[in-house]
C-alpha cells in the first residue's frame, strides 16, 4: 500500500476547519497543524490511484490553497 506525506496550505484562519474536514476523508491522517495555516498529513491508499483520488479531494476542500507532496513510497504498489 503506497504512503505519502503531504503539506496542505490553507487560507488565513482556515487550517483548524480544514483539519477537521480531513478527518472525514478515509485514508488521510492529520499529523500536525503548523504555523502559517499549514497542515502535515499522511495519505494512504490501496493503490497510487487511490492516493491521487484522496489528494484531489483534499484540493477541492473549501479553504485549501494547495497540496504539495513531500514523500511518496509505493514499493508495494503492484507493477
Amino acid at each position: 500500500m503506497p504512503v505519502s506525506g503531504v503539506l496542505i496550505s490553507c487560507a488565513e484562519g482556515a487550517a483548524p476547519d480544514v483539519s477537521r474536514k480531513i478527518a472525514d476523508i478515509g485514508g488521510v491522517e492529520v499529523h500536525g497543524v503548523i504555523q502559517d495555516n499549514r497542515i502535515v498529513a499522511v495519505v494512504e491508499g490501496e493503490t497510487v490511484d487511490d492516493e491521487v483520488a484522496r489528494v484531489t479531494e483534499l484540493q477541492h476542500l473549501e479553504g485549501v490553497l494547495s497540496v504539495s507532496l513531500a514523500y511518496h513510497n509505493f514499493e508495494d504498489d503492484e507493477p
Partner: peptide, 12 residues
Amino acid sequence: KASAAAAAFAAA
C-alpha cells in the same frame, strides 16, 4: 508513515 510525515514537517 512517520517517514512520510517527517519529510513534510521538514519541508515545512
